[in-house]
Amino acid sequence: MTSPPPVVPSLLGVFGHPDDESLLAGGVLAQHAAGHARTAVVTMTWAPESPRATELADALRVLGAGVPRMLGYGDARNPHAAPGRPRLVDAPLEEVTAALVRQIRSLRPDIVVTHDAVGQLTGHPDHRYTHQVTLLAVNAAGHGQLYPGTGPPWQPAALYLATHPDSGTGNLGELLRRVGKSVLSVPDELVSATVDVRPWMACKWAAILAHRSQVERERPLPGILSRLPEEIRHRVIGTEYYTRISLVHSPGMTRLAT
């Protein structure tokens, strides 16, 4: 008699911009979706009616991560992202946290994945603010006294920070420096999960390519990757790194699929 397949934990990605989900966690999102786990993504910036929302929808469809869930704030570096809305970095912390708590309580994920504290290699201010808000929201979502009116309490079991170790920037760091971007990584000992996502490489790359406006430009990472030889590109996107932050003890439901 064969044993039943292991239960793959549900997964919510919380990222600053459309394309972050594919670049930073596309392999893990595709992996969990392939394991029949519920997967979803919340995107903090860009308006739901913007062209980049359409690209995001296409990328999430490829990854199996549902439909876009966009909070609609402005991008700190792009005034056209959400006309009439405040930039994410200018929005009140309580307001943004409440909006994300509502999403967490609605989706009820076992695991949440977001940016690391340094802002994902380039140190983008939206990445850093998203990190801060997600830390607060993941902890607050389980407390019924906090943010009443945003749904029944739900406590995710673990939080993973998508990151890059000092030893793992390699070709990617060199490519970013060439276009004048910073390269911020973390000490290797802070990485608690190194995920080989090569089995989901085709899916991840298709999701990255779905962000067509970024592929067409010179400086965004999708554009940089599209101009690379396939062998180098595979080395850059074939591994994902995470720092795990435990929130509650929940055996069997707190680790990314491997």
Rank of each mutant, 00 (worst) to 15 (best):
P125A: 11
I104M: 04
E95K: 08
P86M: 07
G72C: 04
R108W: 09
T163W: 00
L107V: 09
M70W: 06
T97D: 08
N139W: 15
D90I: 11
N78C: 12
T122F: 11
A59E: 09
T134R: 01
L56G: 10
A99Q: 00
Q132D: 11
A98M: 05
T134Q: 02
R69E: 13
V133G: 03
A157Y: 11
L159W: 04
Y160E: 05
G149Q: 09
R128N: 08
L71H: 01
Q132L: 10
G144K: 06
A57D: 14
D126E: 10
L107H: 06
A98F: 00
H80A: 12
D75A: 05
V96E: 02
D75R: 03
P156M: 08
A91D: 01
L136K: 12
G119K: 00
G151K: 05
L88I: 07
N78M: 09
A59D: 10
R87K: 10
A141I: 12
R108S: 07
L136Y: 10
H80T: 10
V67F: 14
H143G: 13
N78L: 11
A140R: 05
L100E: 02
A162M: 07
V118K: 10
L88F: 09
P156H: 04
S106W: 14
L135W: 14
L159R: 05
R105H: 12
T130F: 04
N78T: 09
T122V: 13
L71D: 00
G142Q: 03
A158T: 08
T54S: 15
L161K: 00
G64H: 07
T114Q: 02
V67G: 13
L93K: 12
N78V: 09
V62K: 02
R128D: 08
V138E: 04
A91Y: 02
L56H: 12
Q145K: 14
H124I: 08
A117M: 01
G72A: 02
M70P: 01
Q155D: 09
I111L: 08
V67W: 15
H131P: 02
L100M: 06
P92N: 07
A140C: 15
L60D: 04
P152A: 14
A117R: 08
T54C: 14
A82H: 01
A76T: 04
P152I: 11
Q145D: 15
A140F: 10
A157C: 13
R61N: 15
A117V: 07
P68R: 01
V67D: 15
H131Q: 05
Q120I: 00
N139I: 13
V62L: 08
P148T: 11
T150P: 00
Q155K: 12
Q145A: 15
T134W: 01
A98R: 10
P109H: 06
E55C: 04
V118D: 13
L121Y: 08
Q103Y: 08
A81M: 07
R77Y: 12
T134E: 03
H124K: 09
D116C: 09
A98E: 11
L146Q: 10
G119C: 01
Q103M: 11
P125M: 09
I104W: 02
Y160S: 06
G74L: 04
N78P: 07
V67I: 15
R85V: 00
G64D: 09
P152L: 13
L159H: 05
W154C: 06
A157G: 13
G151W: 04
A57E: 14
L63E: 07
H143D: 15
W154Y: 11
A57H: 13
L100V: 06
G66I: 06
